[in-house]
Simulated scan of single mutants.
Amino acid sequence: MRLTINGEEKAIEPSKNPLTLSKLIEQLGHHPRLIVVEFNGAILPPDKWEQQNVEDGDTLEIVTIVGGGS
Rank of each mutant, 00 (worst) to 15 (best):
M1I: 03
L19A: 04
E13P: 05
Q51V: 09
D56H: 15
P14W: 00
G7S: 06
I35C: 12
I5L: 04
I12Y: 00
L19Y: 00
T20L: 00
Q52W: 01
H31F: 11
I35H: 11
E55Y: 01
L28Q: 11
T20E: 00
L60C: 05
K48M: 10
E55S: 09
I35W: 07
L60K: 06
E50I: 06
E61R: 14
H30L: 11
L44Q: 06
L34R: 15
W49G: 01
K23H: 13
L28D: 05
K48H: 12
P46I: 05
N40D: 14
L60G: 03
L3S: 01
L19W: 01
R2W: 03
G29W: 14
G41K: 15
G7K: 08
V63K: 10
G57V: 08
T4A: 02
P14C: 04
S22F: 00
I65N: 09
D58E: 07
I5F: 02
H31P: 04
E38A: 12
Q51W: 06
P46L: 05
I62N: 10
H30S: 05
M1S: 09
E55N: 12
E55I: 07
P45M: 10
T4N: 05
I12P: 01
E8F: 03
T4R: 10
P18F: 02
E26G: 03
I35N: 08
M1K: 02
D56Y: 09
L34W: 10
E61C: 11
K48I: 04
A11S: 00
K16N: 12
D58C: 02
L34V: 05
E38Q: 15
E8R: 06
R2K: 14
D58F: 02
V66G: 11
E8A: 08
L28R: 07
I62H: 10
N53K: 13
T20F: 00
N17W: 00
G29D: 10
I5Y: 03
R2D: 01
I43T: 13
R33P: 00
P46E: 13
T64Y: 08
L60D: 05
I43A: 12
T64H: 14
E61Y: 09
D58W: 01
K23V: 11
L28H: 12
K10L: 11
P45Y: 09
D56N: 15
A42W: 02
E26I: 04
K23S: 15
L19N: 02
S15W: 00
Q52L: 03
V66D: 05
E26F: 06
V37I: 15
D47I: 10
V37W: 15
L3I: 00
E50H: 01
H31S: 14
E13G: 08
I43C: 04
E26S: 07
G41A: 14
Q27F: 04
N6E: 02
S22Q: 13
G29C: 13
T59K: 15
P46S: 11
A11K: 02
Q52N: 05
L19M: 12
T20D: 01
P46K: 08
D58Q: 07
Q51Y: 08
T20A: 00
W49A: 01
L44W: 07
Q51N: 09
I25P: 01
L28C: 09
N53Q: 15
T59R: 14
P46Q: 14
V66L: 13
E13V: 06
L19K: 04
P18V: 06
V66R: 12
L21N: 11
T59E: 15
I12N: 00
R33I: 04
